[in-house]
Design a protein around this nucleic acid. Sequence first.
DNA 1: TTTTGAGTTGTTCGA
DNA 2: GTCGAACAACTCAAA
Length: 474
Amino acid sequence: MKEQIVIHWFRQDLRVSDNPALSAAAQQGRVLPIYILDDESAQEHSIGAASRWWLYHSLKKLNHHLQGKLRFFRGNAEQVLTKLAIDFQVRNIYWNRCYEPWRVVRDQRIEERLADRGIRIETHNGSLLWEPWQLLKSDQTPYKVFTPFYRKGCLSAEAPRTPLPEPETLQLAQGNFSEVPLQELGLLPTTGWEKSLLPHWQIGETAAYDRLLAFLQKGLEDYKEGRNFPAKANVSRMSPHLHFGELSPNQAWHAINRAGDDSNIEHFLSELGWREFSYSLLYHNPELPKTNLQAKFDSFPWRSDPDALARWQQGQTGCPIVDAGMRELWQTGYIHNRVRMIVGSFLVKNLLLDWRDGLAWFWDCLVDADLANNSASWQWIAGCGADAAPFFRIFNPVTQGQKFDSQGEYTRHYVPELSKLPDKYLFCPWTTPKSVLQESGVMLGENYPELMVDLKLSRERALDAFKALKKAPG
DNA sequence: TTTTGAGTTGTTCGA
DNA sequence: GTCGAACAACTCAAA
C-alpha cells in the first residue's frame, strides 16, 4: 500500500511543518509534491509582479527542503492534475484549502471531475484559524462588524489547532513527470527591478519562523504602541510569509499566545483576527475585490485623472509622508501598516480617485498582496466596506507625519531630497520659508514636487462628495 | 418584533 | 499647549 503515489498539491502552503494535507498524504504513500502556476484560472487575479518574485524564491527554498523533488507545472490545474493522475495511476490527491472565490470555484470543479474518475480528493485547513463558514451569527449569517466577529465568533469558538510537526516519514516519489523547471515558470521580472527588493527580505519556511522568533524577542514587547511608528521595528512583517503559507497562522497564534497574556499579545492576536475577518468577508462576498460592499457608494463620483494616479504611484505627490510610503512600496514591496492608511486616504479622499486603482497598484507591487486583505482594507479606507472608517475620518498627512514619524527617520530615508529640512517643516515643505528651503537644498518644483493638491480644499471636497452620497436614492 | 448599545487606526475647533 | 466635543447618522448584533 505504501508503494502507491499520492499527490500533494502545494498552493498557499509553501512549508513542510504544520502542513495538515502534506502530513496526511505522507501517511498514505509516496508523495509527489507539485506546484502549478495556474494563471489561466486566476485571470484578472493572477499573481502580481512583486509576489511572483517572492513566489520564485519561496518555491526554490521549498524545493531545496524537499531534496529537489518538488515538481513545477504551468497551466490549467484541472488538466495538469488529470493528466498526472492518469499517467501515474494516482488514486489520492491532497491539498490545503484556499478561499479566494476563483480558487473555490476551480477547486470544487476539479474535485467533481476527478471524483468522476474515481480519484479521491482530501482537503485540509492549512491557512486559516477558523473556517469562514463556521463563524456565523446565531441567525446563521456572516458577521459584518469586526468586534463581535472576533469576540463572539473567533474567541468563543474552539481554539485554533496546535501546529503539527514535520511529517516523520516523508517518502517522495521519483520519476519523469514532464514538469517544467522552476526558472521557466516566468516568475522573475526581466527589468532588474526586483534587485531593490532582495536586501529587505529573507524568504522561505526557515526564514519565516526566524522572523516570528525575532518579533517575539524584539517587536512584541511594545507592539500595541510601537506598531504605529514606521521607523520602529515593532511590526511583525510576517504578512508575506503568512500569505504564501511559509508560516501558518496557527504557528503564529500559538507562539504569540505562549508568550504571556498582556495587552500587546492580545492586540497582535486580534490582528490575526483581522486577517480572518478579511477572509470571511471575501468568502461570503465574492465580489469584494470589485464591488462596493455598501451599494450606496456605487454612485460615488470618483475622478478619472491618470496623471494624478501616476504621481501617487511614483511617490511624486509633493506630500512627504505619502511619497515616503509609495517609495517604500516600490523599493521594498511593502508598506508599514499606518503608512498604508495614510497613502490610501490620500488617494481616495484627497485625490478622490477610485479605491480600485489603489488596490490594483498594491496588488502588483506588494510582496504580501493578498486578495482578501487587500480588498477588505481598501474598502475600509474608502469607507465603503464592512465596519469602515466613517466618512469624516480623513487623515491629515502632515499631522500623521508629525505624530508618527516625529524625528523624520522614515520620511528622510525614503525622501532623501528633503533630508536636510528641519523636523518642523519636513512634512509640509510648501509652508517652509524660502530661506529654510534654500539652506536645506530644496527647490520645490525642481528637485522635489510642489504639493499636488491643497489639503484643506481637497478634504472639504471629499466631505461634500460623501455628504451628497447620503442624499442619493438607494 | 422591538429596542438598545456599540462601532480599528481622525481632525478640527473652541474653551 | 491641552482637552473635550462635534463631526452624522446608520447599521449591526444581540437581548
